[in-house]
Design a protein around this nucleic acid. Structure first.
Lengths: 293, 293
DNA sequence: CATAATTCCTGACTTTAGTCAGGAATTGCG
DNA sequence: CGCAATTCCTGACTAAAGTCAGGAATTATG
């Protein structure tokens, strides 16, 4: 633990985080309680599912419900049944709510600009570059990777996002039911499922099957666009390989679609070599393997 | 207003400020209300005057008093009469309070380290450098400059610090009573007094006299060491000159001591030229003037 | 189709934060 | 010394934040 570096981080936490955070809150709060403003902001012009709001803002279900009722009472929001599942309700802004949201949006712009305004052009460039760097690197250290049952909500969310993304990127589309991995295959001791989270939001996942007598197989490796390029995929892959090796696997293999170029790059950089097809996965164009010994 | 830069700042405010801020708070809060922890932390092993705590934490006198009573009740703090003025009370940590403080200190270290731990050495260096840069430049934009009566507490604090600094830096020492400016000379319309503040803390001041029939005169320009090099002195000076020009002054002049090298540099860079003595100030070695037309 | 699980809502709380007016002790000033 | 200013304390509030148990509507599951 490097004293000098820790001191810089502490100083940063103290001054920037508190001072700017307080400012940000006061800009947001205007004349409404802070929690209401935050919620209104988070719903946004697109609307949002109540469940999503709960995890994003990390609120108690009862408290959130009450906040929504208040906003509804003020005529800013309507909560209606969701598209698919009628239990998952969706909050949308009314005309008035949208106007309020735009006001918040503008005042957030104002705050940002007030930080840049007193600086020279050169200082502005330096400040924003440094901010982007801090954000980027901090994100990396806020990602936590943990084993998890594939049925848990965070895992589910990742798998849904994974399927959506494959459906969008594959030329042939993608049918999630044909993915050919059952939950129980990636639950210990048959395998392992990992999720990467930032705060309470799941931002990545990955699984490994450990069939007896066969090489281990990596499945469902996915990283949210919001944290790509921060080494999360690499960390998930490493962790899965470590688990496979600890479980006695000599090698690990996987298949992938040609449209997933970032993943293919990751596999090559991690020491995977292309091999002939070992299965008949209709979505696969490339098959890779890596020795763990 | 540059859209791209504003977006970077907003993203930074949102993710870094909120997420790290919340983390920081939760580390601090442990099992005590946040306000109590913050107060305990702010008192520190050295102890602190209640008045100082009030301005630093920006708390209501009644609320602060109640918080202190609670900490006292928990046996963590004792509040006793101050050294000089018995109205200004001083809070000190007890043995137990000190132990709690050290716990907070250590957990703050832990938090900082947890941000650095998942990074490579190179990334750590980049992160801390970027943090320092953000902090430095943000400080500049959080400085607000406003007119103020020289009798107000913030102004008083600056003038005291100013006098202390002059006494320390002048070879001959410095007697504040001989400074030769009465408050009423720098109150509109006879003149103007400005203070620079960060949050609720005063970090700089400056005044201008507007004697009729004479050039305007800059007095008591001071910037706290904590924000030197950020252009605060320049902004104060510019503002004072603008006011003098608006009041009809053709030129502005000032005197200064040879030990105040940063100030002398500032004057030269701002277009001031050295002139012969225009007064008999015993502390002055240089006299400067600048035309405002 | 009954049962279990999910998702949200409601009511009844507690705790924390924050405000304000009034009063006591101390100090500065004429 | 007497009066005003300063500094803090106390009591009596209000508002916001947060928690928890129980219940209704909907959907999955055997």
């Amino acid at each position: 633990m490097d004293r000098a570096l820790v001191d810089v981080v502490r100083r940063f936490n103290r001054t920037v985080t508190q001072r700017v955070g307080a400012l940000d809150d006061s800009y947001l709060a205007r004349d409404r309680p802070l929690a209401q403003s935050r919620l209104l902001w988070e719903i946004g012009p697109e609307g949002a599912e109540v469940a999503a709001l709960r995890t994003r803002l990390d609120l108690d279900a009862g408290y959130l419900s009450r906040l929504l009722r208040t906003l509804e009472g003020a005529g800013l929001v309507v909560v209606g049944p969701g598209e698919g599942d009628a239990r998952v309700r969706t909050a949308r802004l009314t005309e008035a709510g949208r106007a309020e949201w735009e006001l918040l949006d503008r005042s957030s712009d104002d705050l940002a600009w007030s930080m840049l305004a007193p600086l020279t052009d050169g200082q502005r460039t330096r400040l924003t570059a440094a901010m982007a760097e801090v954000e980027h690197l901090l994100m990396a250290s806020l990602v936590a990777i943990e084993p998890c049952h594939p049925g848990e909500p965070g895992a589910r969310a990742c798998l849904r996002a994974y399927a959506r993304e494959l459906a969008a990127r594959f030329d042939s589309g993608f049918d999630p039911d044909s993915s050919g991995v059952d939950d129980h295959e990636v639950v210990p001791p048959a395998g392992l499922f990992l999720v990467a989270t930032v705060g309470s939001e799941a931002v990545g996942c990955g699984a490994v099957r450990l069939p007896s007598g066969e090489p281990a197989e990596i499945k469902r490796l996915w990283v949210s666009p919001s944290v790509r390029g921060l080494g999360v995929g690499r960390r998930l892959l490493d962790e899965l390989e470590r688990h496979a090796a600890a479980a006695g696997a000599d090698s690990v293999r996987l298949d992938t679609n040609r449209s997933l170029t970032e993943a293919i790059q990751l596999y090559r950089r991690s020491g995977y070599r292309e091999i002939p097809p070992y299965n008949r996965n209709p979505y696969a164009h490339h098959w890779f393997a890596k020795s763990l010994t």
